[in-house]
Design a protein around this nucleic acid. Sequence first.
RNA 1: GCGCCCGUAGCUCAAUGGAUAGAGCAACCGGUUUCUACCCGGUCGGUUGGGGGUUCGAGUCCCUCCGGGCGCGCCA
Length: 552
Amino acid sequence: MTPDALARAVRDVLVALVADGHLPGPVPDDVVIERPRSKEHGDYATPVALTLAKSAGVPPRSVAELIAGGLAAQPGIASAEVAGPGFVNIRLAADAQGALAGQIVESGIAYGENDALAGVRVNVEFISANPTGPIHLGHARWAAVGDAIARVLAAAGADVAREFYINDRGVQMDRFGASVTAVAQGRPVPEDGYHGAYIADLAAAIVAAEPQILDLPDDDQRRAFREAAYVRQMDQQKAVLDLFRTHFDVWYSERTLHDTGAVERALDRLRAQGHVFEADGATWLRTTDFGDDKDRVLIKADGELTYFASDTAYYVDKRIRGFDVALYLLGADHHGYVSRLRAIAACAGDDMDRNVEVLIGQLVTMMRGGEEFRMSKRAGMMVTLEDLIEEVGVDAARYSLIRYPVDSPLSLDLDLLTQRTNDNPVFYVQYAHARIASVLRNAGELGIDWRSRGYDPALLDHEREGDLLLALADYPAAVTAAAELREPHRIPRYLESLATAYHRFYDSCRVLPRGDEPVEPRHVARLWLCAATLQVLANGLGLCGVSAPDRM
RNA sequence: GCGCCCGUAGCUCAAUGGAUAGAGCAACCGGUUUCUACCCGGUCGGUUGGGGGUUCGAGUCCCUCCGGGCGCGCCA
């Protein structure tokens, strides 16, 4: 029995109690089912009597008694008891609990998927690094977390697009182009240019590929270098992200935004909503109507569009493309954008609490030998995603970036992440997967065809088996919570608890027959439990974009 | 100055308003006659930064103070 099924069972009891006049209505739509911290409080507990008592005008324990009485008569429930101020503590029957293993194996990769966010179209925009340099460590957190959020949202039934916004227009691009040009011509990089060693690499590669570029007139040459460097730098970013298993559905160019008239469309819409005004020769958006600190300029007095105009047009464009939610994943240095992005939505006539969402990711640093790791081989003073992958590998990097809530600063300890020990949770979880794969392999070699035999769920009655089944039952709720709260770190945390439950089970429950022992139904039942655990570990690691190895 | 985020065990961090605040690491003690010991069990460890409030119930919500991080351009 799953927590969902249990919630329905409790609700059925409440409906019956109301129908019989034992309780006044209404019955709440959602009955809260909790996993008590203490095992003494049962497999599950519901505090619903506590919340109902007030409106019913009855002592909570009396309400709880009624619920417990009704529940105990339900199939699959071993016991339901009232405890504390009015909790109902519930224990499941072993067979009802054990049946879950079969359900999970049958569901396979779909176990954990749900429809909590069905019908919601979400645009997840993340990284959006300038195409003027490599993806750095600050972006890396979002490369992992943004991708995991997208996976988790999709698992919860949302229609998700991963999007990368390319700032390929404006002053930074020109400075980038000027820097590459200068190096190619043997001149020093301008003061306000880009100084990393990668600039020289780009210049050399471009000159090697198209030597005639140096014969072009100055302006043409600078433009040609800029465009060639842009293409190469984007390719480099894409290659690294590809290596990092972060793939985008849409690469959205700021130039495109301007070329397709999206800016004008957005301005029209904002004007129609009545939040645009002229002052001091400039065109403004009155974002202060919706909580921003100050109004923002869309078109400068010199006629140039601001970056804010692009932001605005881009948001409106996302909505025109049919997304219900524009989810922005930004670095802490951009948190000042939150109020203006929300104001943009409101100015466009949208609901700023629903149509736009901004997550702010705090800083990431890398430590080695107790010292901060600051230098990159290619990029100078910044550490790149490439460096991180080189240091710890994709799995450890992704896992440890996803493992923590994004609103707290993160310090990655490279010494730890390269160790294959318990300090390093990704190995702990992967090891559990590999361990199970090994058991299943051995079962195959012993000729135990557990899958076609079926199993008796009531045999999974050992305490550690029950704990493992409870952990397996928690998975869908972990996925839903991760999606609804945009907190993918819940998945690694969950996987670690599942891995612990498995290792504990493995420690006290022999799965395969020893030596010449015959194959008994209990062995088969435990193989089903192993297979179910393997599946959930694989599914959860999949949501993190981390591999689930069969051998380690 | 204004705004946002954070403050939980020696360290790194969990905890969707629920019961006695949990893991891992570190320290100490134990565990494998055959499935992966990269594992498992135990001990030690807390005024959840301080104070006040809301609630049947607060680490969680509100107020205030303290401490830390970041942001506040007709820049991009």
